[in-house]
Design a binder for these strands. Structure first.
Lengths: 340, 340
DNA sequence: TTATGTTCCGCAAAGCTTTGCGCAAAGCTT
DNA sequence: AAGCTTTGCGCAAAGCTTTGCGGAACATAA
């Protein structure tokens, strides 16, 4: 049993032919006689030969590797997006290296450096929460290296991206609250430097307007998306002289923090407060009452991001940044329908 | 701006010295004069040189890559274990390639083939649910390639592994039910081909014995760990003439399926039925009532698995399979304490 | 001046694969 | 039989890095 993987050289010396002959025989090159070809192929199969990706990479000057940076690894949202990326990547012969920025700007820069050192062919990135300037992408963009942002994006005129229709769904959702009987609709927002947070905030305002309301400053709380700030924001909202009768929270972390705080105070959902979560079906149906939720097509986001990436890799010519917008879905459950 | 990453050759030709001189200068080899060393290092820094991992891999005959196979990617349990692996791997200059077996035996074999073709240096694996024979690891074991199992393990006399104290925690948990007032303690078990399922089942029996009970066949249901079978098992238990007053479910999927079904039938937790979940804190505290849970040290499992892996890689001599057992923690919350 | 010793650097091979080109032998034509 | 084509294979370079060894240039000693 060979300790090391078998190479063309091994086959060549076993068969007393040259390495080039083996290489050609394996791809049925017409220069090689049928007899030799047969012998080579049969031995290659028997010994389970497969080309050394390192050597191929060196030769072709490509690593067939995509770097992926996400704010965290353990959330369903990101892990299922990664699954989507992985599937398309694998189908096209690519590997992915996954890094987590832990929502930190510094860590994000570090990840990029590391991935570039690993010679990834390009990057698929979801911005960290703390990322507020975008110059660290200069090097990548200038080198015309494939780059795709998803969910939290920036520099859209230069970089392709995949997003969901955040503005629109936030608007729908706000109107849904109104239709469900809510009249004081609060919003726990995220940092306005973050594209998704900004879009959802604007959608919220737009929805309010559609319902004939103007924004009430006291019903809008900005957070940094942490559980503790979200809890605090909820607490403040609930202690208002006239508390909200519905809360639209900007993402899943905030949604669940709000829900916990509402329950902790002994308030009833949706009777006292309607709630919508941005999360997946599993989590939405896990709790009582089941949560109306905005479901993102996470797997598809990943797939689209990978496809966008691959498209960039191909056309060496003129790269036109593209933006793919996927539709989220509002699934109405008990948490947002007030008893009549 | 160079389109391609800078190589030793680029620096060498810019400085009119040989490639070997550049290589040596970068590592402060005494053969190289201080002047040349200084020039080389300064240009290397300026041009942001970093060695090509492909070339290094080819030279050293190592890819610095660990293949990781998990049953699924989107569960907190596995994704946080992967985080742990990733951290230790990165610290030691290793990359990881993650594959999902989707709980399928066939897919697991396929993943192994693919990873071997990618020239991973070894594998860290959690067995798929459907894996019932273990011959597909022969090739890896015979080649003395580093291999570590975690959580769901096999061939322990040949392969190192990381597990939690399943038997013991299952026993404790059963006794905890008894102490909490339960007298008909049911168990929704998993396939007995799976090490963890078997261990927990045995721990359950042992705990019952400690409480002076013998096992009641009707209170034990075997499932394949899917949500649907778990729901069905719960339904059967609840429809017994004398239904259980506590349910110990073998894993998180089953735990939540059981909880949902119990609630669907309008039964109260813990008043009618006590429940313990095997899950993380986030999920345990998300629901009403908060669930007593068995918390696995997931991140540490990943770290330990990676460390075991690295230890194997080093000592080329005699490889002694090691088993690391980590302690799980039983965190008591409302779901298992019956009102007195 | 010659022999010996340093100092400082380059050559080349190895690791694996692909591919343009060259070359020998065999077959064919006239 | 001489010249041409075809067939079938090998050489070598390129992609990047490390490292043993050889060697030129200079310095020192006798």
């Amino acid at each position: 049993m060979t300790k090391h993987p078998v190479s063309l050289k091994d086959i060549a010396s076993a068969l007393q032919v040259s390495i080039s002959t083996v290489s050609r025989a394996l791809k049925n090159h017409p220069d090689i006689s049928p007899e030799v070809t047969a012998k080579v192929q049969s031995l290659a199969r028997e010994w389970n030969y497969s080309p050394n990706p390192l050597a191929m990479g060196l030769l072709r000057q490509q690593t067939k590797t995509i770097g992926v940076i996400v704010p965290d690894l353990v959330t369903y949202f990101y892990s299922s997006i990664i699954s989507g990326i992985e599937q398309v990547a694998k189908e096209n012969g690519y590997y992915i290296i996954i890094s987590s920025s832990n929502e930190s700007y510094e860590k994000e820069k570090e990840c990029i450096e590391n991935l570039l050192m690993s010679r990834v062919e390009g990057l698929i990135i979801c911005l960290a929460r703390d990322t507020v300037d975008y110059n660290h992408f200069d090097k990548i963009i200038n080198n015309e290296m494939p780059l795709v942002f998803f969910d939290r994006i920036c520099r859209t005129s230069e970089v392709s991206s995949v997003v969901t229709d955040n503005r629109e769904i936030a608007r729908e959702l706000t109107i849904h609250f109104y239709d469900g009987g809510a009249r004081r609709i609060a919003h726990i927002a995220g940092p306005q430097t973050l594209s998704i947070a900004k879009d959802r905030y604007e959608g919220y305002l737009s929805g309010l307007a559609d319902c004939g309301f103007s924004a009430d400053e006291s019903l809008i709380k900005f957070t940094n998306l942490t559980e503790s700030e979200a809890t605090e924001a909820t607490r403040q909202l609930l202690s208002l002289p006239k508390p909200p009768d519905a809360i639209f929270s900007v993402n899943d972390t905030v949604s669940f923090a709000a829900m916990k705080e509402i329950k902790r105070q002994g308030l009833r959902i949706p009777d006292d407060i309607s709630l919508v979560a941005i999360t997946d079906e599993f989590h939405a149906t896990l709790v009582d009452p089941q949560l109306t939720n905005v479901m993102h097509p996470t797997y598809e986001i990943g797939q689209e991001a990978a496809r966008l990436f691959l498209r960039q890799g191909k056309q060496g010519e003129k790269m036109v940044p593209m933006q793919v917008v996927l539709k989220s879905q509002l699934v109405v459950r008990a948490s947002s329908v007030k008893p009549t």
